[in-house]
Design a protein around this nucleic acid. Sequence first.
DNA 1: TCCGCCCAAACTGCATTCATAATTCATAAT
DNA 2: ATTATGAATTATGAATGCAGTTTGGGCGGA
Lengths: 230, 230
Amino acid sequence: MTTALSTQPAFRRKSLHEELTDAIREQIVNGDLAAGIRVPEKDLCTFYGVSRTPLREALKVLATEGLLSLEPNRGAWVSRITTEDLDEVFPVMGALEALSGELACKHITDDEIGRIRVLHRQMVKHYEKRELAKYFEVNQRIHEAILEAARNETLAIQYRSLAARVRRARYVANMTQDRWAQATDEHEQIMECLETRDGERLSVVLKMHLEHKLETVRQWLIDNQSPSDA
Amino acid sequence: MTTALSTQPAFRRKSLHEELTDAIREQIVNGDLAAGIRVPEKDLCTFYGVSRTPLREALKVLATEGLLSLEPNRGAWVSRITTEDLDEVFPVMGALEALSGELACKHITDDEIGRIRVLHRQMVKHYEKRELAKYFEVNQRIHEAILEAARNETLAIQYRSLAARVRRARYVANMTQDRWAQATDEHEQIMECLETRDGERLSVVLKMHLEHKLETVRQWLIDNQSPSDA
DNA sequence: TCCGCCCAAACTGCATTCATAATTCATAAT
DNA sequence: ATTATGAATTATGAATGCAGTTTGGGCGGA
């Protein structure tokens, strides 16, 4: 068969439940839906203007991702983050991020390193200007770029799933000056490892980086968790 | 409130979609539903005697677990395992299992070590009698016991999810005598590490153990993948 | 005032129904 | 004979309806 059209990479439009999954996930991760609150199906239905069927499918998916908890006949809650959760999730993220560093050093191209270097410089500028939100955003893009360089989609999916669960806490955790300086320094080391393609060292640095981040977030959670919402 | 009964761990009966999820997952993992085949909703509905609504919810969950792939308006397929998949999944499992070894050595009790040792002896006997199926079963229970000893439910869930995806291949991959001997020897080392609580070494051994297993499964897949089902 | 009971309202679980897209098969044209 | 076209069939996407469970409030009794 020969036509005027070459083969397209098969663009498939998302189905409704998938769009809902993404939208609600977004709402949870960025805090629109606060941790711990009940999520009645009807409310979301009217909000999105859809029926319950695709919505319920989305809820099931988000529950397996750990962002919601479902109880039979009792509905859905936005999962609450406890310090116990953090203590569980961060080590796993550490293991995955260490692996991503190792693999990234094997596969990363000079071009990719260059782009990450650009991001890194941006991030340092945001640090110097104490622009926390922008710092976080670029920070996340750097980690995402390393994840992509690892060339392992399974790893990326697993990591992102865990990251989403703790992101709510990570965002808001405003760091002390010391901690911020330390984090920026660690990122300097991350850049060095990438440029020398020292995977072994990078995995160690990333693991430690996350351990420190855990401490920051952990402290924030202890300080800010109102005693009432247990 | 004080009654004669102490609080139970919240005895909730499963809802239909959850039971379906478990049942179909089982069907996929043990090969009842072969990799690559289409899974029409109607067929499963008549098989389980349920309507499409809860079934579809189950399919969505299994898709996020990676056991099914869904295409909008085109239905569900049992995910096919490729060598590329294995090359992605095994390193991630390796990282997770290494972590589980590390954590297990920190938290494991003497009692638990004793029980794993019993399992280990059973496994060695099955090896000596060349009882592959029984060997695999006990093998899996050992790894599961280590995972439990790690005291990290998030880690366990992630690991099991990945393990389920490749289990189909792992089961059938019959090992060479050499490979089998090597695996048994590695398990001997695993026992040593647990008994001495040498988490650092255990994580290395487990990672290597999985790397070797990848080679076995990989080879099997190459040999047995009919060229037609691409 | 406090506790338990009962009933109504609200919500979830599941089945059914309608709508729409994909597939199949027969037919026609080259 | 092969390919393309179009109608019929089948499967999936989404909305609606009904049954069963949970929740919350009012009422009566201790």
